[in-house]
Each structure stands twice: as C-alpha cells, then as structure tokens.
Amino acid sequence: MLASIDVRMLLVLEALLEHRNVTHAARHLDLSQPSVSRALTRLRLIFNDDLLVRGSRGMVPTPHAECLAQMLPMVLNSIRGMVNCGVAQGKSRSTVRIAMPDHQAIVLLPPLLPLLHERASDLDIVTDSDLTGAVRRLEQGEIDLAIGQIGSAPQSYFRRRLYPDHFACLLRSDHPVLAQDWTIDTFTALRHAAVASDAKDGFDRVQDELAKLGVRDRDPVLVSNILTAALAIMATDLVLVVPCRVATKVAALLPLAIVDPPVDLSPYEVALIWHERCHRDPDHRWLRHEIAAAAAEQSQQQARGQSINEASRL
C-alpha cells in the first residue's frame, strides 16, 4: 500500500482535513475541484475508509480520518524537513574537517574563525595538516574540504582559487647576512631549514626548485612544522623559504626579517578543493563562501601591510 501513496496525495488529504470542503481544498492547493474529488476517491481506496462524509454543515471526518489528522502534520513536516534540510548557515552540520598544511592554517584561520563564530557559533572546525590522500578522503567523506597548493581538480572534484602568493626568505632580524649584498652566493652559503612533509602540498616544491638551481642546502635542518622552523631560525643563522603570506604572519610574531629570494621561484597558488558529493549541499556551499571571504580578507590585509611597508621605506 505504501507504494501507492505519493506526497501530493498526502497534501490533498491535509487540505481536505483542514477545510472539510472539496472546493475550498482545491482553491488552497491551486487545483481544480474535479482533480481533488478524484484524489479523495483514491485516498478512500488506499485507506479503505470513507475519510470524509457529508454532514449538515459540510463534510465531517471519520474516526480513522481523525487519527490520520493527528499523524499527518508530523509526517509532512518530516518530509518538508528532508527537502529543506540544508540550513545555509552551518546549522545542520556540527563538525567540519578540513585538510590544510599548518602554514596555510596560520594564514587562513585568523580571519576565518571569527566569521564562523559570528554566523555559526556551534560549528566545530577540525583541521588536519596532512594532505596525503586528500582526494580519496574527500570522496569517502573522511574530510569535507582540502586547502593547499592544488594545481587542478580531478574528474568529479571542484577547485576554487583562493589567492596567489610568492616565496620569501625568513632570517633572524640581526642575522649578519643582512649587512651584506644579498646574492645567490650569499644565499647558497647559508644552511637552510625545511619543513618535513610526506604530502605533496606544494610547499615542498620550492626545495625541488632550489635543488635544480643548484642553491639548495644539501643537508637542511628538517623540522616538523612552520612554527618550529621559525623558532629555530630565530636562534640560529638558518634561512627558511616560505610563502610570503606565511612569512608576514610569522614575522609579526617573532623578531624575523623578510627578504626576497635572490633566485626566481615559481608562484605559489592556494586553492580550495571538494568532491562532487558535497557540491550542492547548502551548508557546504555556505562554508566554501565563508572560506573564500576569509581568503579575500587576508589578501586585503596583506595588501595594506605591503603598502605600509613601502610607505615606511620612502
């Protein structure tokens, strides 16, 4: 019997039980009176009951119809909730998992978290610094989004460019090399710090480029994350090559100097990637918009900071 019922029949039954008049129910549903009459006939067959019978002041419900009238709102509200389940404010999703390297978390989380707290205070953000297998994990729902140096989106995936970047060098602010000519030879003579990573997140690509140019330290000091590397170079003569936005964030916290590399390195572009399974989800779409807004705000802050630095040098 369940296969013989569709939502439209239940909506007709709801209107008939509310108005107890075929003509009024038809007007409420924007249907013709004959179509509602036919629907009532079909409903009577489905439930094996008259449901509504003529009375002195219109139609009156049978006991079975009165029972259905109590159950119907819950059933229809559940169906409406299924159709409108996506509350595009992060309400229906309590936890979101995002894979992003820690150096990008330093850049994006400061502008992103206040936006989320203001608009979806109950939403928990869990970050994973490991981008290994991100494509597979997106498909299987282990993570919701991935952020990093992602050149292209495979089939069934979507990619959104967040911002471009270039590489910069970090040294301690009183490093003796800062008083010398900053040349390739000076740069090559320094020992490098490098963030160890098995994931091809794009940050490690700069080490490959330096090696091709013959200026990479053959025995770099490997550390686990960007902040550990920053603390190491603050106390040593090491140099660290990182995306410029990351360098700006770290140098604002520690006594470090930022200088451009004396060699040309490929630009660095950060992108957001997600799987087709979540593409049309309203909550997911809302979160992607918030991440893009946070990235745009960070870009504006970066531009303002560069303007201030340029003005201070005049």
Rank of each mutant, 00 (worst) to 15 (best):
R304A: 14
A211N: 10
I233M: 11
S4T: 12
A193M: 09
C169D: 04
T95D: 11
V221D: 05
V259G: 04
A15M: 06
R42I: 11
T95H: 13
H166Q: 13
A251K: 01
A257H: 06
E14W: 05
S307F: 12
L265R: 04
V60L: 14
G305I: 03
D283T: 11
W182G: 03
S224F: 04
A252E: 15
M1W: 09
A88I: 06
Y157R: 06
A168S: 15
V259L: 14
V221T: 08
C244Q: 14
L178H: 06
E142W: 06
D185N: 11
T236L: 04
D49A: 08
E14A: 14
T183G: 09
L272T: 02
A153P: 01
P63M: 06
D124K: 13
P243H: 03
Y163Q: 03
T127S: 00
D130W: 00
L253Y: 07
A193P: 02
E139I: 06
Q300D: 14
P111Q: 05
P282Y: 07
L123R: 04
S266D: 15
P164A: 11
S152M: 15
L115H: 08
L2I: 09
A252S: 14
V223E: 07
T186D: 04
G81F: 10
S92V: 10
V195M: 03
V259A: 13
R119T: 13
A189D: 13
Q302L: 10
L178P: 04
A26F: 02
V223Q: 08
L17D: 08
V246K: 01
D204H: 12
H284N: 06
N77H: 12
P111I: 06
L116H: 00
G86P: 05
R80M: 11
A257I: 02
S94Y: 07
H166F: 13
R277L: 12
L51K: 01
M1S: 13
Q306I: 11
F167N: 03
R313A: 14
S35R: 14
R93N: 05
A230H: 02
V107W: 00
E209L: 13
A99Y: 00
V96L: 08
L76M: 02
L131E: 00
L72H: 06
L11E: 15
H175T: 04
Q89N: 10
G202Q: 02
M74A: 15
I291V: 12
I5K: 02
L240F: 15
G202V: 02
V87R: 13
L31N: 08
E297K: 09
L40Q: 07
R119I: 08
L145G: 00
A69K: 06
L265P: 04
M59Q: 12
L265E: 05
R97S: 08
R313C: 12
A39V: 03
N77Q: 13
V270G: 00
D204F: 07
G305A: 11
D165E: 02
P114A: 07
M82H: 09
A193Q: 03
I143Q: 00
A26Y: 00
D30N: 14
T127G: 01
L287E: 02
T23M: 10
R54I: 05
A189P: 04
L314G: 11
L108I: 07
R97W: 13
V221W: 04
H24I: 06
H19T: 06
L45V: 08
T23A: 15
Q104E: 14
Q300F: 13
G214R: 10
A3S: 13
N48F: 10
H289I: 13
